[in-house]
């Protein structure tokens, strides 16, 4: 067995409690390439298995990378992580893998970001990228919705997002909540209020699949082009390099051909349940 399925060993250097059952692990690791926004790593928890988690941000420290992975405790490995993996723990890291958000191709465009729940994790890398290269893009609009205020990720950074020049940030929650004076309803409702010119805008969407389908359909109705609406999909990703076969969506391997696809590429496949 060759090296492609062999992880580098990294160490958790920081853990951020984001929301109930959601933590962001900062893992310091050497020997892996810098991830592009929207790419993912495969994290290996010794004896328990691997999980595919998008990179939400990263930094360089003395030749190593510190990769940030926001993990919700929902399956066996991630639940084990939450109860047993902490600062100082060793974690295997393979990656970065996959086709991320197409950002370089859309320099000069306005950017609309639509995130739902944990789906903000891969979009955070877009926010970071755009704020680092602010002069290369037009207006930036972020729509982010969660079930409850407490479920929102990266709350400590919202000031930073709002401070990005020529940008606006809009939040929603699904159900009314004491102390919440923002929008109540689905995040996709907010699309109606976006005042960007579809002709000069690109959209990056991530959230539950049903939310992404609603968002994409709505965006297209509003005049955004299908080949400029991008979705980050999830499937049963395991190997990350297109050899285990279990993440297939039609003829695509989500891990290798995606996880980011234009709506145009996957529209037909997403319209058939269980494909």
């Amino acid at each position: 067995m060759g090296a492609r399925l062999v992880p580098r060993v990294g160490r958790v250097v920081r853990v951020v409690e984001e929301a109930p059952l959601v933590r962001t692990y900062h893992i310091r690791v050497g020997g892996i390439a810098e991830p592009e926004p929207g790419q993912f790593n495969v994290l290996y928890i010794k004896g328990f298995g691997e999980v595919v988690i998008s990179v939400s941000d990263y930094s360089r420290v003395d030749g190593d990378l510190v990769v940030e992975h926001t993990v919700r405790a929902v399956g066996a490995v991630t639940s084990y992580m939450h109860s047993n993996v902490d600062v100082g723990s060793l974690v295997g890291v393979r990656g970065p893998y996959g086709r991320g958000w197409p950002l370089k191709e859309f320099e000069g465009f306005n950017i609309l970001i639509v995130g739902g729940g944990i789906g903000l994790a891969p979009l955070r890398s877009v926010l970071k990228y755009v704020s680092r290269h602010r002069d290369r893009y037009g207006r930036l609009v972020l729509l982010y919705g969660a079930r409850r205020p407490v479920d929102m990720l990266y709350k400590y950074e919202y000031g930073e997002y709002k401070a990005i020049p020529n940008s606006s940030v809009h939040f929603s929650i699904d159900m009314p909540h004491i102390g919440w004076d923002g929008y109540v309803g689905f995040v996709t409702d907010l699309i109606d209020r976006v005042d960007l010119d579809p002709a000069t805008s690109v959209v990056y969407v991530c959230g539950p699949e049903v939310m992404m389908k609603v968002a994409a359909a709505k965006l297209v109705k509003r005049g955004f082009r299908e080949d400029r609406v991008f979705l980050s999909l999830e499937r049963r990703c395991r190997c990350g390099i297109g050899i285990c076969g279990t993440c297939q969506l039609g003829h695509f391997f989500v891990c290798k051909d995606g996880p980011v696809f234009s709506y145009q590429e996957v529209k037909e496949y997403l319209s058939v349940s269980g494909l």
Partner: peptide, 16 residues
């Protein structure tokens, strides 16, 4: 048919 699944084993000693 080429699909594969990964399975993990953990020994009491901590070897995996």
């Amino acid at each position: 048919c080429f699909c594969t699944e990964f399975v993990d084993y953990l020994e009491p000693s901590g070897r995996a």
